[in-house]
Write a protein that binds this DNA or RNA. Sequence first.
DNA 1: ATGACAATCAGAGATTGA
Length: 267
Amino acid sequence: MRVASFNVNSIKARLPRVLEWLDDSSMDVVLLQEIKTVDADFPRLEFEDRGYQVETHGQKTYNGVAILSKHPIEDVRRGLPGDDADEQARYIQAVIQGLTVASIYLPNGNPVDAGPKYPYKLGWMARLRDHVRDTLLPAETPFVLGGDYNICPTDGDVYAPEKWAEDALCRPESRAAFRRLLNLGLTEAWAALHPGREHVYTYWDYVQGRWQKDEGLRIDHFLLSPQAADRLVACEVDKSPRAKEKASDHTPIWVEIADAPAQRQAA
DNA sequence: ATGACAATCAGAGATTGA
């Protein structure tokens, strides 16, 4: 099963781009971030016409996540547990053919020095870790958490690390929180399959020809449970959508998860 | 230090993003 993650930076502004990419790629499941619309205004018919089921967790103007799937979607959960007062739509989870998937839009966190945004980011990461530790891992089932993590795990994931050292995407506290998540026993799919490979990006700012100069950041990731990691066969970044007119500033990343092995017969 | 660019809401310009 192929699962992609794509921060579209507004599903309405990006609809033709996303549809043409869906037609060209062969994804079973697509995790979207920054749909920037409420559920009622999500263009679901266009996706249903292409054979995708649609589940959204939207919000007016900002954030918003969604799951598209060619297979039935079960047990949908909206919102990250741990703070009932948090109204930002950044997490949706579901089960598809026995695989738990989540679409994650982790807070950006800038500015670091002032205001609530950086504490909110670190708090959100702590809540995600709690959810993984207390609910997802104990189930001992395969899961993939895909999305825009707004974290550059290492300096090799940044075009100019010295310029970004104090940014919320690169700060030591941000990277430590990301490692704490991995240290629960998760596998970061790209890093696992492309060890040592640097300067492969999933985001390029619109300004100053960043795309043309390949000055980007790797901030979109897939984190896999042990049961999913055992079945991981591929993880790739598809740069082609970023080159188009009216592109998102992100490009899709996808993983291929092998079918579950047949149950071993009792002796 | 600012703005480079894109999107939203609104119907101009502020806010957000990474």
